[in-house]
């Protein structure tokens, strides 16, 4: 595998080019160009943060469910148990683990999204 340019550098380069074009576009395409630049931002963050986030999420689900498996297996089993009401907001550690997982996902999807648990502005 090559070491340079990294995939994230390529997405950054394309995002910058889109930003240069934006002022010359009609409103609809200017909007879609901004969305496209955001898409490249998600891809870039997923490339750098995704593997560690997936590993951490798998570890949290392993502790919660008390057995080992792939992320997909554990996630599917957790969903089944939540749907059946076998695990609820009362289950020790459940909300904390789910929150930690979604915060890692949010750091990829929308790092600037501010929610009720965010630090004050």
């Amino acid at each position: 595998m090559i070491t340079h340019p990294k995939a994230q550098e390529l997405t950054t380069a394309v995002a910058r080019w889109i930003d240069e074009l934006r002022p010359d576009l009609d409103p609809r395409n200017a909007f879609l160009a901004r969305v496209s630049a955001n898409v490249l931002g998600v891809i870039g963050r997923e490339l750098t943060l995704g593997p560690a986030a997936q590993a951490a999420a798998t570890e949290r689900l392993t502790v919660l469910l008390d057995y080992r498996g792939t992320f997909e297996e554990l996630n599917a089993d957790l969903c089944r148990r939540l749907r059946a009401g076998e695990m609820t907001v009362e289950t020790p550690g459940l909300l904390a683990a789910l929150k930690a997982n979604v915060l890692d996902q949010l750091a990829i999807d929308q790092p600037n999204y501010r929610h009720e648990g965010s630090a004050p502005p």
């Binding site: 998600v42 929150k99 979604v102 949010l106 929308q110 999204y113 929610h115 009720e116 648990g117």
Partner: peptide, 14 residues
Amino acid sequence: RRVSETEIDLANLM
């Protein structure tokens, strides 16, 4: 990719 924003909001509410 906006589903995760609703998930953190739901987690905070619960």
